[in-house]
Amino acid sequence: MKRNILLLLVIFVGIGFLLHAWPSFSQEGEEEAGYPTYPIIFTKPLKAVLFDHKVHVEKAGLSCEDCHEDIFKMEAGSTQQNEDFNMDSLYKGKYCGVCHNGEMAFASNTRCASCHIGVMGYERLLKKQHSSESSSEH
């Protein structure tokens, strides 16, 4: 009887440990890919711009050093604290505008909604993140 209880306890603890570790499993994609797999969202100076590492690494063939840390700091979303993080700076060849100048990549003053996902897109992403978080808790 005592052994049975001990066995059950071990199983429960095991399950608890598994569930606890679950969120970190989803981060494993990052280790494998070599870049952050979660969306980088800028909300300043306005909502919202979505940056996808996958497109820039796999399709555009960029390496980490191409942008980090000269153009963008490693810490996700930290660049938006800069006061000059706006479209004018991009047109002057700063930030995204280093490449998005119409020669290396499409110009910053074209295809607005490629990067700008808007308030609607931002809220959709938050909802998605929230629902994936709450499902991993159960």
Binding site: L46, C112, I117, G118, V119
Partner: peptide
Amino acid sequence: DRCIDCQL
């Protein structure tokens, strides 16, 4: 096409 849904 210039709209970015910033909702300002």
